[in-house]
Design a protein around this nucleic acid. Structure first.
Length: 215
DNA sequence: TTCATGATAAGG
DNA sequence: CTTATCATGAAC
């Protein structure tokens, strides 16, 4: 399993399945990705997605998603959190996998310094904002190639097994997306079944009931 | 349920 | 320049 498989995916969910169960490595810290959300791209691209930051085309913020697969797209959320995505698809077309939750498998003491002291271990990287906080990233990390050996942030894709299990032998499930007002009912949120670190599902109050389907 | 907090993109 | 809208989290 290499970065090539991320650039040649069939679609958003295929890319999400590759990233789910992978390990993000940063200086002194390793996070197992246990929850992701798939996002498509521009309206006239292969995977149009009204909820994607790139739906209306390329802008300075979303430019990384139009580049090569396997790069980190970091954006500021609600003015105070940093959220992380992994780009996928061929150059020229946008797509991103939002990292929504992780298990700290290395460097918990380092992560704990970035989070409130009372936070239970399984909640250190639960939720996209908390994941970014646990990872210690900011906008300076936007665009990093996660598969370049010289990068300080790297992604280790898990070996994929056939059927409904991830690369570490755990089953996964899927459901509607969180926090988006459009196309929220696409079942593009994927998580490792049974993980305590998976965030609780909360439908966005802004989500309409008519935005169902792939369009 | 409320609000902190700032970038982004679209409209005038 | 103005302003609505957030791919959220934590405190009440």
């Amino acid at each position: 399993m290499t970065v090539d498989s991320l650039s040649k995916v069939d679609g958003p969910v295929s890319a999400a399945r590759q990233v789910l169960g992978s390990v993000l490595r940063l200086p002194g810290v390793a996070l197992r990705v246990v929850e992701v959300e798939a996002y498509g791209g521009e309206a006239d691209g292969p995977w149009p997605d009204p909820a994607s930051h790139s739906y209306r085309g390329r802008t300075p913020r979303n430019a990384v998603m139009f580049g090569r697969a396997g790069c980190l797209y970091v954006y500021r959320s609600y003015g105070m959190h940093f959220c992380m995505n992994v780009s996928y698809g061929p150059i020229g077309h946008s797509g991103g996998i939002l990292l929504r939750a992780g298990e700290v498998i290395e460097g918990e003491s380092i992560v704990r310094e970035r989070r409130a002291r009372t936070v239970p271990s399984h909640q250190l990287a639960r939720g996209p904002g908390n994941f970014g906080s646990a990872a210690g990233v900011d906008l300076a990390d936007n665009g990093v190639d996660l598969f370049d050996q010289s990068s300080s942030i790297r992604l280790e894709l898990a070996e994929r097994e056939s059927g409904e299990s991830d690369g570490i032998g755990r089953r996964w499930e899927s459901g509607p997306r969180v926090g988006v007002s459009r196309a929220a009912d696409r079942p593009w949120r994927l998580w490792i079944a049974g993980s305590e670190s998976v965030s609780a599902y909360r439908r966005s109050p802004r989500a309409t009931s008519t935005s169902i389907g792939m369009g």
